[in-house]
Nucleic acid binder design. Structure first.
Lengths: 157, 157
DNA sequence: TATTGTTATACTCTATAACTATA
DNA sequence: TATAGTTATAGAGTATAACAATA
């Protein structure tokens, strides 16, 4: 973790730098990483209540309010009253929200290309396999990791 | 970075979890990750001035004061006056500091074992090679990554 | 004038708990 | 009573800039 030849240390460095780069890149179109994560979440669970989505993304309720406020002020998503429960606010992406999410996704794919530059497909797959092995060693639940076509997908960075 | 099959997303997840685990583990012997990083830095550059070490670890001067205060209160390191510059304070590990650093290093090696469990040496080396390739793609300077026996080593997580 | 270490301060981030309106 | 969303608030963490001693 801390010395030479350490997988742990290298992973923590690369993870930090990857997150930093991602934040920098989506920042160019005016998004913070967790705003991007929320746009993805709303796209995935469109029409669900604000707190239901917050819970799945592990965002505290009070923090959620601020993020939704901001994205709503930018007209990227909307709160709509729930017809069957007047306490609840259901979340929907606006057309602008869909567009912004698509842009951010494109940027994320660009970063993925940068990260994997010079790796043949076979080596990239090998790397992913090895990383998934490590994920299991760290007890990272599979639903929080990308994998081949199984059900739930992660909502963001 | 955000979707399935993404190296970027997986790296950021693993990096976060690795750092979290490391913090948890060294926490058991009363250290925070950056306190560990500083102990390592002082061991590596023992006798150098407080700010010189802070700069190498990219710790702001005012933050450094608090960390050194704490470690000095715990008698893990000492400030000693510089005989040639009365403004400067040179840092030294105490015997207890050396001991604590060794304990933390042992714990870090344990985490490394957990991370790499079930990987043959050949696969582990392959993983490290692939991660170094990614590091180059991300312009992470080689001096900040563990590598085979070259000069400067990273000071901590 | 510049630099070392320190202190004070301001700022961000986040979570906790109180509050309202509903259920 | 309990829950959805909101607001207010307090805490941690961190950086910025002012300060005293020394170069």
């Amino acid at each position: 973790m801390s010395g030479s030849e350490s997988v742990g240390f290298t992973l923590s460095q690369l993870g930090l730098e990857t997150s930093r780069r991602f934040g920098e890149i989506v920042g160019e179109i005016g998004l913070e990483p967790r705003q991007f994560a929320l746009l993805r979440g709303v796209a995935r669970w469109e029409g669900d209540a604000q707190q239901a989505i917050a819970e799945r993304l592990q965002i505290p309720a009070s923090t959620m309010v601020a993020i939704v406020d901001h994205l709503e002020a930018e007209r990227l998503l909307e709160r709509r009253p729930d017809p069957t429960d007047r306490r609840a606010r259901n979340l929907y992406l606006t057309p602008a929200g869909h567009k912004r999410l698509a842009e951010a996704t494109t940027l994320a794919m660009g970063l993925e290309s940068t990260i994997c530059a010079g790796l043949q497909n076979r080596k990239r797959d090998l790397l992913l396999d090895l990383l998934r092995h490590v994920a299991r060693n760290l007890d990272i639940p599979s639903w929080s990791l990308p994998d081949k076509g199984s059900g739930e997908r992660p909502a963001g960075l």
